[in-house]
Design a protein around this nucleic acid. Sequence first.
DNA 1: CACAATCCCGACTAATTTAGTCAAGTATTT
DNA 2: AAATACTTGACTAAATTAGTCGGGATTGTG
Lengths: 165, 165
Amino acid sequence: MKLTTKGRYAVTAMLDLALNNDKGPVTLADIADRQGISLSYLEQLFSRLRKKQLVTSVRGPGGGYSLAGEPSEVHIAEVITAVDEKVDAMRCGGKSNCHNNERCLTHDLWRDLSNRIYDYLSDVTLQDLVERKGVPEMAANSDDPKVKLGNVRSTASDPLAVLNQ
Amino acid sequence: MKLTTKGRYAVTAMLDLALNNDKGPVTLADIADRQGISLSYLEQLFSRLRKKQLVTSVRGPGGGYSLAGEPSEVHIAEVITAVDEKVDAMRCGGKSNCHNNERCLTHDLWRDLSNRIYDYLSDVTLQDLVERKGVPEMAANSDDPKVKLGNVRSTASDPLAVLNQ
DNA sequence: CACAATCCCGACTAATTTAGTCAAGTATTT
DNA sequence: AAATACTTGACTAAATTAGTCGGGATTGTG
C-alpha cells in the first residue's frame, strides 16, 4: 500500500458513490464531473475496485457503479490497497537480509510507522467520512512525553504534507 | 514532506553518523560502503542536510561529516523534510477552493493522517534508534473501538507497506 | 610544494510511477 | 436498431527518484 494521489482519487470517488448510493448506480462520467478526475483515469481505478469487489457495475443505459457493501463496512485502507500495486514491503522486506545493524534499526522504524498508518486508515470507513464524524482523535501520544511536539513542528516552514503530492 | 526511499536513505545515513559520532568525521565513502547507497546520491542528500544545518562537514584528508547536534535532539521528521522538497500540501491546500462537500471530507482525512505521521516522526530521535528503544508503543487507538482491527488487516494479502517502495 | 583525500556543485541520464489519452470493443436498456 | 455505459488494452506525457559524471575547492601530510 502506498500513499499517493492515486489512492486519494479512489477514496474520493468511493465517497462520491457513498453519497449517491440511494439514487441507484452512478456513472463514472458523473463522478468525473463532480470530482474533477479524468474519466479514463477513473475507469482504470474502478476496474481495480471492481476486481476487489468493492463496487458492483451495471451496464447499459441507467447503469453505473454502486458500492458493493454498506458504507460503514468499507474501510479506507481497503480502497487504497485496491488501487495501488503491491509493493514488496521495504527493500529488506521482512527478510533477514538486513545484515548490518543500522539498517535493521531504521527498518523497525518504517515498519512501525507503516503499521500505524494502516491501522489508522483501517479504522476509518466511508460512513465516517459521510457523517463527517471525521477521524478519530488526534491521539496525541501523551503517554510518552519524551519530546514535546510543537516546537519541532514550528520549525517546519509550512503546514506539512506527509503524503505525496 | 514526503515519505519515500529518499527520506529513508537520509535517515539511514544520519543513523550511521550517530553510531560513529565518537570517532570523528565520517566520510561519505564509508557510509556508501556500509549502507549500500551510491556515493554521488549521498552527496546530494548531504548537501541538503548541511544546508539545513543537521550536519557539519570538514574538508580534506581525515575530513567527513558529523552530526551538528546531539543524537537525542535530531528528530526523524527534520531529517526527512530536509531532503524532500516542499510540496504544496494537498492540492486544495488549506485554501477554500474545495467547493464541493465530498472533496473537503477526504481533505480532512488526509490532513489528519498527515499530522499524525508527522507527530510520530517528530517524536522519534536518532538517539531512540541507536538505543533501539525503538519506537513509542503502537498506540492502539483503544479509545475508539468502533472497528476492531485485525480482521481487516488479515484480508490484506501481505504485511503491508504503507510507505512507498 | 605536490598530492591525495575529501567535500562541493551542477548538469546530465535512466528507471519508475503517476496521470491521462485513445481506440476499440461488449453488454443492456429503450 | 441505437444510444448508453461499462471493459479492456495499448499508448503517451509529465514528474519524481535514483544514479552518474566531471569537474572543481579545501586541506592535511610527506
